[in-house]
Amino acid sequence: EETYEVDGEEQLKKVEKMLRDRNLDVEVEIHNGKFVIRAK
């Protein structure tokens, strides 16, 4: 499992696309105004 923490939606979209391109399962949560992306 990998976890990424990003600020802002633009970064979120980039990271999310990169992970989905690797066929990973992606979950996004918001913690303290930051996006936390978990990939399995």
Rank of each mutant, 00 (worst) to 15 (best):
E1Y: 15
E2Y: 13
Y4E: 02
Y4M: 03
Y4I: 07
Y4D: 02
Y4L: 04
E5V: 15
E5R: 08
E5L: 13
E5W: 14
V6T: 04
V6A: 08
D7W: 15
D7F: 14
D7L: 11
D7P: 04
D7R: 09
D7A: 10
G8W: 09
G8E: 08
E9V: 12
E9W: 15
E10I: 06
E10Y: 06
E10D: 11
Q11P: 03
Q11G: 08
Q11D: 13
Q11V: 09
K13D: 06
K13N: 06
K14Q: 12
K14Y: 12
K14V: 11
V15K: 01
V15R: 01
V15F: 09
E16F: 14
E16L: 15
E16C: 14
M18K: 05
M18G: 03
R20F: 08
R20N: 07
R20I: 06
D21V: 02
D21N: 04
D21M: 07
R22C: 15
R22A: 09
N23H: 12
N23R: 07
L24P: 04
L24H: 05
L24G: 01
L24A: 04
D25Q: 12
D25A: 11
V26N: 01
V26Q: 01
V26F: 15
V26S: 03
E27N: 07
E27R: 13
E27V: 15
E27Q: 13
E27H: 13
V28T: 03
V28K: 00
V28N: 00
E29M: 11
I30V: 12
I30H: 11
I30C: 14
I30W: 13
H31L: 13
H31I: 15
H31A: 10
N32S: 03
G33N: 06
K34W: 07
F35Y: 13
F35C: 10
F35R: 01
V36Y: 11
V36R: 05
V36Q: 04
V36S: 01
V36T: 06
V36M: 05
V36I: 14
I37R: 00
I37G: 00
I37A: 01
I37F: 01
R38P: 03
R38G: 03
R38W: 05
R38Q: 03
R38K: 11
R38D: 02
A39D: 04
A39F: 10
K40H: 12
K40Q: 08
